[in-house]
């Protein structure tokens, strides 16, 4: 299998979908002539021309709303956020408009669009550019939320997002754009709402997504050296959640650690923990551990930033607490 970069996998997904459906177009800041702030859309302007790969002024709410209106007409816009920190400006458009379209119109209009771009803390960027804001969207009925953790998943999931008839928020870890992974050359699609076991295990279930999956896998390796066999489960889609996959893993291992890059309070993780404890209470042998970012705006200095983000050490410690082996 060829190894390609995360950004290349995303690029392939968009290119393939634009080739198969003339209603798909890409719009955002610097997506065309500059080839994307993170080069995700590299070469797409050349391939599809300025009608379908569209540079915009810096008006996130304006062009996201434009995308929603175009989607209302049956087009399939991919609206790129340079990063999701700037998508805070589009929450009104996404929550009050896109998410309500199908319901409020009694099924007369829908909103087949993708809002995608970079999320998470890339390092050295300080408080306004280092946020994991998936909870803002996962909270909202009417939206779907996807966060891939590998190039393979990124490609298959983005294709599904583009084909879907509902508004999908697709958050890509900014740090991972340059990471490599195997991606099959033949076409595939990963359905929305389908999670994946990233590592099989029996002693404990680590639930996480996006870049934190890799922190979890490293933690699982470290624990394996100490004789513990940890399972790593990646829901991939946060809304709708693959509850069956999560619950089955928990019922097998009886212990859970949830790891996320977002803040701990009112987070996606706390929502998942609530579901697991309700549905798997009789199977749990220990309280669910929750590893999240420290509850603070992101500091700039690397020594402070390191403290804020979940890391392998914190994940290993949480696993040990959940296994009562501290």
């Amino acid at each position: 299998m060829p190894e390609i970069l995360f950004r290349e996998a995303l690029n392939q997904a968009m290119v393939e979908e634009m080739e198969r459906d003339p209603d798909v177009f890409l719009m955002g800041e610097e997506v065309a002539e500059y080839n994307g702030a993170y080069k995700v859309s590299k070469g797409m302007l050349e391939k599809f021309g300025p009608k379908r790969v569209v540079d915009t002024p810096i008006v996130e709410a304006g062009f996201t709303g434009l995308g929603i209106g175009a989607a209302m007409m049956g087009l399939r816009p991919i609206v790129e956020m340079m990063t999701f920190n700037f998508a805070i400006l589009v929450l009104d458009q996404m929550i009050n408009h896109a998410a309500k379209m199908y319901y409020m119109t009694n099924g007369q209009y829908s909103c087949p669009m993708v809002l995608r771009g970079a999320g998470g803390a890339p390092g050295w960027l300080g408080a306004q550019h280092s946020q994991s804001l998936e909870a803002q969207y996962a909270h909202i009925p009417g939206l779907k939320v996807m966060m891939p953790s590998t190039p393979h998943d990124a490609k298959g999931m983005l294709k599904a997002a583009i084909r879907d008839d509902d508004p999908v928020v697709f958050i890509e870890s900014e740090l991972m754009y340059g990471w490599k992974g195997e991606v099959p050359s033949e076409e595939y699609v990963i359905p929305i709402g389908e999670g994946d076991i990233k590592r099989q295990g029996t002693d404990l279930t680590l639930i996480s997504w996006s870049r934190m999956i890799h922190t979890c896998l490293e933690a699982a390796d470290a624990l394996a050296e100490q004789g513990y066999n940890v399972e790593v489960v990646d829901p991939r889609t946060l809304r709708p959640l693959d509850e069956e996959l999560l619950f089955a893993s928990v019922r097998k291992t009886n212990r859970v650690v949830l790891v996320e890059e977002g803040w701990p309070f009112a987070s996606v993780g706390s929502g998942i923990i609530n579901r697991v404890q309700r549905e798997c209470f009789d199977w749990l042998d220990a309280p669910i551990e929750h590893v999240a970012s420290l509850d603070t705006p992101m500091p700039y200095a690397p020594n402070l930033e390191k403290q804020v983000l979940p890391d392998v050490e914190r994940v290993v410690a949480a696993c040990k607490r959940a296994m009562y082996v501290d």
Binding site: A61, G62, T64, G65, L66, I68, G69, A71, M72, H97
Partner: peptide, 8 residues
């Protein structure tokens, strides 16, 4: 902006 998108 939605209407602008319809025009688009």
């Amino acid at each position: 902006p939605l209407a602008t998108g319809v025009a688009w």
